[in-house]
Design a protein around this nucleic acid. Structure first.
Length: 350
DNA sequence: AATTCATTATCAC
DNA sequence: CTAACGGTGATAATGAATT
């Protein structure tokens, strides 16, 4: 028995709470639109802004065109992080089997704490109530027999919703949903599935026409996953703690650049950030990856592996620039984005 | 033959 | 007219290089 909780339009809702004058006005949290010239994206928009067609992930320049008079706020990560921590602590009082997915999303395994779905529902209501009381924020909850069902259920009735899907209702619940509602099926996979089935606007029930064999053939491991999910099955566990496997920083320039001074100094500061953060992990690294996106949006990576070493600035910057210079001389084109990432060595015992 | 490395693709939020 | 489009991290596929 799994519960999924998703905060409603989280960043924007927090900003409304901090400044109630924003309520009722279209509000967009994301990068500075700079009069429509900026290259960032929308993080979260409140419902008033969504009426203009603005949504998460959209280019901020497009959002600005759709609604220049909206209130545009920068992403105040520290604030959301504090609120997030408080919400997770509330959730963890209900069950310590809690998986934090992002700032505003988490799963709880209720198998040990609820005898039946009615009890689970009560827990869901209580959770929403506690969060509202403590943080003055609304959330949406879904409960189902596995993580996938719980997640889709939490989307069902937002904002401020609570949906319980009992095991017997599972198939009926998902069959009419779009294939895009299945976590793990993104735009590319949807397109490919449409091509295979010769039909657009695919529903979950349509997927049942595809055999396990065919799906595995076409999509590998993910195909097997799709086969099961189309039948309401998902045996992934709620995982409470996971260790960081990699850590990186990247940045997009305001304008594409060919200036070596700018490129190198930017890379240097990205490297410094990565090293400072990697140090806190107190673990060795085994790979350094540099990323470069050029004018035209095509991206390339170059990486180097070695015997486990401490993440020092000399190492990460030193090896990193070599990789970067390789990419730059190979392409010799204006640069849009630069990034650097380190991959940690797996630590022993778990 | 098995494992690791390098690179790209896809996805989620 | 169309495209516009961040940052962080995970996982998988594939082919080459190593062990």
């Amino acid at each position: 028995m799994i519960l999924h909780l998703d905060m409603d339009y989280f960043f924007a809702q927090v900003e409304e709470r901090e400044n109630p004058r924003f309520k009722g006005e279209p509000l967009v949290v994301g990068s500075d639109p700079k009069g429509g010239e900026a290259r960032g994206v929308v993080s979260t928009a409140n419902y008033e802004a969504r009426k203009f067609g603005i949504s998460s992930g959209m280019a901020i320049s497009k959002a600005y065109k759709l609604c220049p008079k909206a209130i545009y706020l920068p992403v105040n990560k520290n604030l959301y992080s504090r609120v997030s921590e408080s919400i997770f602590r509330i959730m963890e009082t209900v069950s310590d089997k809690c998986e934090r997915v992002s700032f505003d999303e988490a799963y709880l395994d209720l198998s040990r704490v609820a005898k039946n779905y009615s009890q689970a529902e009560k827990i869901g209501r209580d959770l929403k109530e506690m969060i509202l009381r403590k943080e003055k924020l609304t959330s949406s909850v879904g409960i189902g027999k596995n993580k996938m069902i719980a997640k889709i259920a939490s989307e069902e009735d937002k904002p401020d919703g609570l949906t319980v899907v009992r095991p017997g209702e599972t198939i009926g619940f998902i069959s009419k949903k779009s294939v895009r509602d299945i976590p793990g099926i993104g735009p590319k996979t949807e397109k490919e599935l449409e091509h295979i089935l010769g039909k657009s606007d695919l529903k979950v029930k349509d997927l049942k026409r595809l055999s396990m064999d065919q799906l595995v053939n076409d999509f590998g491991k993910r195909g097997a996953d799709i086969y099961k999910k189309a039948r309401g099955k998902d045996d992934s566990r709620v995982k409470t703690k996971t260790e960081t496997k990699s850590l990186g920083r990247e940045t997009t320039f305001d304008k594409n650049t060919t200036d070596p001074e700018v490129i190198i100094s930017t890379f240097k500061s990205l490297s410094k950030e990565v090293v400072d953060l990697a140090r806190e992990e107190e673990r060795n690294i085994k790979t350094i990856v540099t990323v470069c996106r050029f004018e035209g949006f095509d991206s390339y990576t170059k990486q180097i592996s070695f015997k486990p070493k401490k993440p020092t600035r000399d190492l990460v910057y030193g090896e990193g620039v070599k990789l970067l210079l390789d990419l730059l001389t190979q392409k010799a084109r204006p640069v849009r984005l630069l990034g650097v990432r380190v991959i940690f060595v797996k630590s022993k015992n778990r």
